[in-house]
Design a protein around this nucleic acid. Structure first.
Length: 489
RNA sequence: GGGUCGUUAGCUCAGCCGGUUAGAGCACCUGACUUUUAAUCAGGGGGUCGCUGGUUCGAGUCCAGCACGACCCA
């Protein structure tokens, strides 16, 4: 199916070639960042000419043509500048050619800088060349690209035509910078560990599976970074972090993308209490750097990140929100107690029931930053037991705006207990729990050589970015979110 | 998986109770215009109304199914 707008542009490309002009030249004349040109001429008064000749390169974003003179807006990655092209300055041929350029083309323009009487800094073009032709028209210049589906599917155009989109990803990059600089300043070393895992470990989630042909080996895209980072701890890198993609073969929603960016950090000689303090200071630093405040508006809700954040034990939170006092009730007793309160629950194990009730009653109430503590040890197979309550794990999850943002433990470093926990998981797996974790002998071998007492934490950086950038959907903070395939006819 | 809403020109959008040849702005083409900045003025081209079926004398409009998306729920 041919598009007349594209055909017209392709004809222009051919016409240029016929005149011996390369619409996509390999060599680029020297130029300066537009931002720099603007900055250097800040003091220029209206109608004043600088006498300075500059060269700029960028994309033609708009044109205002008036017969023998034309104004053009040129934009590079730093800023936008106006160009004044006049027939008597450029010469007839070069002027005719610039009139034939299209919005979307990349141009190189050289000339003197002056300021118009309306105060706009402008390059009076003395010469210009094509740097690259565009053969499709850009989205509407005033409204930009509005259609949400097109914005996700054609992010290049969203970035190009919507300033807020570009700003959002600039601010996301600043968030990453702040996380790195804060952790580095605390002596953490950034490392990279494998994304292809022979055994998917570190959490419970359905993995993506792939196959290495030469090794004839099934491999899994990592669902967490945990077990490799712990190996570096065992090796003596006792403050370590990684920022990387994790992959979970699960549904997509406004809070879930199948690949997402995780921060995991491990600090020896501390525990999950230390991780709470680190979470408060790290998230605080990120908000200070990006927003300049610990109190922010998120989609109409005021969020206050001032420390200390609320702490609540899981069973207390369930009791507060559902009225169910679980205490030491067994699974069948919990089902009965729920039934007595008119709450229908599925037939699950005790820890699964606790998780179910938590998700149903507590999570929807967690708006302000809250550390939920005292998770059942059965659903925390990599966390230390509480010395005073061995059925509970030294673990917290951080919730904000009903979203899990972080998950942290006093890391289990007793290799015998760790083996027991893995075996418990294997038993669950054998009895049909596909999500149960698998025994990782290579990790246990490393752990048996000794791991220091350690606090560890994982942070979902996309969700943190949502809070920071006031984004309603995770797709708004991921450049190229996962979408269903759409066949173009 | 269920519910609600949406899909009309490259982009942003109108299109009423089913009734001539589906409209506008931007973009594009032609012409006028040497300080405009959403430039202006005059003219022109551009449509498988998401797809498939159905109801009807007649469907962008009503009905069903499907695709894709948004939001809510599980």
């Amino acid at each position: 199916m041919s598009d007349p707008l594209v055909d017209a542009r392709l004809e222009k490309v051919e016409a240029l070639r016929a005149q011996g002009i390369d619409p996509f030249p390999a060599r680029v004349p020297a130029s300066e960042r537009i931002e720099e040109v603007l900055r250097r001429h800040e003091g220029l008064a209206p109608e004043e000419h600088s006498g300075a000749r500059v060269a700029v390169a960028g994309r033609l974003m708009a044109r205002r043509q008036m017969g023998r003179a034309t104004f053009l807006d040129l934009r590079d990655g730093s800023a936008k500048i106006q160009v004044h092209a006049a027939a008597d300055r450029l010469g007839e041929e070069a002027y005719a050619r610039i009139c034939d350029s299209d919005v979307g083309d990349f141009l190189h323009v050289a000339g003197e800088v002056f300021r118009t009487k309306r105060g706009e800094l402008t390059v009076a073009a003395e010469s210009w060349t094509f740097l690259a032709k565009a053969i499709r028209p850009l989205p509407e210049k005033w409204h930009g690209l509005k259609d949400v589906e097109l914005r996700y599917r054609h992010r290049s155009l969203d970035l190009l035509s919507n300033d807020e989109t570009r700003q959002r990803f600039v601010r996301r990059a600043k968030m990453m910078e702040t996380v790195r600089s804060e952790l580095t300043a605390l002596g953490f070393l950034e490392v990279e560990t494998p994304a292809l895992h022979p055994i998917p470990g570190g959490t419970t989630a359905r993995p993506f599976i792939t196959h290495h042909n030469a090794l004839d080996l099934d491999l899994y895209l990592r669902i967490a970074l945990e077990l490799y980072l712990k190996r570096t701890l065992i090796g003596g890198i006792d403050r370590v972090f990684e920022i990387g993609k994790c992959f979970r073969n699960e549904g997509v929603s406004t809070k879930h993308n199948p690949e997402f960016t995780m921060l995991e950090l491990y600090q020896a000689y501390t525990d999950y209490e230390g991780m709470m303090r680190l979470a408060e200071s790290l998230v605080g630093a990120v908000f200070q750097a990006a927003v300049g405040s610990l109190v922010v508006d998120y989609q109409g809700t005021r969020l206050d990140f001032s420390p200390p954040w609320r702490r609540v034990a899981m069973l207390d939170a369930i009791a507060e929100t559902s009225g169910l006092e679980l205490g030491t009730l067994t699974a069948p007793e919990i089902v009965d107690a729920a039934k007595a309160k008119g709450i229908g629950v599925p037939n699950l194990s005790r820890p699964q029931l606790i998780e179910h009730l938590f998700d149903r009653f507590v999570e929807p109430t967690l708006i302000q930053p809250t550390f939920v503590t005292d998770y059942p040890v059965e659903i925390s197979p990599l966390a230390k037991r509480r010395a005073d309550a061995p059925h509970l794990a030294e673990r917290f999850e951080l919730f904000v705006m009903n979203m899990e943002i972080a998950n942290a433990f006093s890391e289990l470093n007793d290799p015998v207990d760790q083996r027991t926990r893995f075996l418990d998981q294997e038993r669950l797996r054998a009895s049909g729990d596909e999500e149960a974790q698998r025994i990782d002998e290579d990790f246990l071998f490393a752990l048996e050589h000794g791991m220091p007492p350690t606090g560890g934490m994982g942070v979902g950086l996309d969700r943190l970015a949502m809070l920071l950038l006031n984004a309603a959907s995770i797709r708004d903070v991921i450049l190229f979110p996962a979408l269903r395939r759409k066949d173009e006819a």
